[in-house]
């Protein structure tokens, strides 16, 4: 097997195995750590696609900050070991298997489409759109400005919602 395809398989195994761990393992912290493995696998796949900037942003933001926050919250409220029923476990595993099957089925087509797009557009050498973070930022703020702003607005809405809920609770507590 070629080195690159071996590494590709390794990262895929990390993604899928991590996903399986999130569903199957007991305890929130174990699940969160499986998610970390999965995220690192995704970052590795992005690296293989030469999307270096995206890969490291993925690690910084999701693995380095968001997941730490998850773990922090889990530890704050206590790591309750909930025992899921057999049926729900089975359903989750079935869902995971279905996702894997979808991936296995569509993967060659997606790869082929990607190859076509890349051969039609920019080359995969360093200096292509995603390899240079500068170009990445340029496209983010010109062609994809609207989706970017919408995503920002959604995050803002979520933040305001959290603040409102937290304040309501506190106000209720002081009254009672």
């Amino acid at each position: 097997m070629e080195m690159e395809s071996f590494i590709y398989c390794l990262f895929c195994a990390m993604c899928l195995g991590g996903g399986l761990g999130v569903l199957a393992l007991r305890g929130f912290v174990n699940s969160a750590m499986s998610m970390l493995v999965s995220m690192l696998g995704v970052a590795g796949l992005l690296l293989l696609m030469r999307a270096y900037f995206l890969a490291f942003i993925m690690v910084t933001v999701y693995a380095g900050a968001v997941l730490v926050l998850f773990v922090f919250v889990v530890m704050l409220i206590g790591d309750r070991r909930e025992d899921r029923s057999f049926l729900s476990k089975f359903m989750l595993l079935a869902l995971w298997a279905a996702m894997c099957a979808c991936l296995a089925f569509f993967e060659p087509q997606i790869t082929a489409a990607g190859m076509e797009a890349s051969s039609a557009g920019a080359s995969l050498e360093p200096g292509s759109i995603l390899a240079l973070s500068k170009n990445y930022g340029y496209f983010l703020f010109t062609k994809f400005l609207l989706p970017f702003e919408i995503a920002g607005l959604m995050l803002l809405a979520a933040m305001i919602g959290v603040i409102v809920i937290a304040r309501l609770k506190r106000a209720g507590n002081t009254k009672a």
Binding site: M33, Y52, F53, I57, V59, T60, A63, G64, V68, S133
Partner: peptide
């Protein structure tokens, strides 16, 4: 090309050891 980002990203993972 983006070694600064790499350094910040990977060193951020060190906290998992403590956690």
């Amino acid at each position: 090309d983006i070694s600064l980002l790499f350094a910040l990203a990977v060193s951020a993972l060190g906290v998992y050891g403590a956690i």
